[in-house]
Amino acid sequence: MATKQWADGPWELIETPSKSLDVANEHPAVYIANEMAFAHNAMLRGINSIYRQAPNVHETQDITDFLFFVKSWAGWVSHHHVLEEEQMFPGFEKIIGKDGFLEGNVDQHHAFQPALKKLLAYGSDIKPEQYDAAVLLAIVEELGPALRQHLSDEIPSLLSMQPYDGPALLEVYKECEAEAGKQDKHVVPPMVLGLRDVTFQGGNNWPAMPPLSEWFVHYLFARRHSGSWRFLPCDTWGKPRPLPFA
């Protein structure tokens, strides 16, 4: 794998706060920032996987599966940011007592939203015979820089919540986490588990799940769209593997 391009570029992954902060700091804002960093890195591995593989997908079935992956990734990222704007950030600001505390992060959403919508539409509407890697790459290149900047900048914003009511902040986060868990189980869990890397920065167990969850995802939920999950950079257990079309 060392000689092949992988999903850790061209848009660089984010260092998780637990690598640079005092690990004894257990304020919930640190936990929230850490969890969000793992989620953001999953998003970056997704856009990198799309970018690395797009030029080398040629057969009709491969294109069909790849476009579903593109659509699924863009839909998941879009849902994540809508949930932040409508539920998570207002919930945090209510506890903090400052309207607009996270306004800068919301403004960044608007910077990449048009390109994200283009990508979602491309994955949803383009027929295999219309597939043009150059068009797809242009959309991703438009999206990537602003998205990467936002995903990085949001982490210190979340860490800046440490002076405030930690348990209340955590309750908001957990409610949003539960809401995110309502997405299509045949799409989001298989994709997200394959976008994490349990070996990243010395190892991690993100996301925390009940026992046997990975088994259920792998053998039950992932089967419906298994062709699309070929393009993921890791297996269901979060172990890195070569990108087949890189």
Rank of each mutant, 00 (worst) to 15 (best):
N204R: 05
Q5N: 13
G203E: 06
N41S: 04
F221P: 01
K19G: 03
P233E: 10
W206E: 02
V172L: 09
L13T: 13
R45W: 02
S18C: 02
P10L: 09
R52I: 07
W237F: 15
G181L: 05
A208W: 07
F89R: 10
I63Q: 11
I50D: 05
F112P: 00
Q108W: 03
H79R: 13
L67S: 03
Y173P: 01
P145L: 00
V140R: 14
S152Y: 11
A54C: 08
Q162N: 13
M88W: 15
K98F: 03
E84N: 10
E141M: 05
Y164Q: 11
Q53L: 08
H186R: 10
I63V: 11
F245Y: 11
I95P: 06
V57Q: 09
L102R: 06
L137S: 11
S152F: 11
F69G: 04
S20P: 00
D235R: 12
Q61W: 15
Q149H: 07
A121Q: 03
L67Y: 04
Y164E: 00
P10A: 13
H225S: 13
E154R: 02
F245L: 12
M43W: 07
Y122L: 06
T3R: 15
S228L: 08
H186T: 03
A115F: 12
C176M: 05
G100A: 05
S72T: 02
R45S: 14
A111W: 14
A37K: 10
A134R: 14
P145G: 08
P240H: 14
G100W: 11
L193E: 07
E129V: 08
L119D: 05
L169C: 04
T199H: 13
R241Q: 12
H40T: 01
R241W: 03
L195P: 06
L44T: 10
I63Y: 13
Y164V: 01
Q149F: 13
L193Q: 14
R148H: 06
A168H: 12
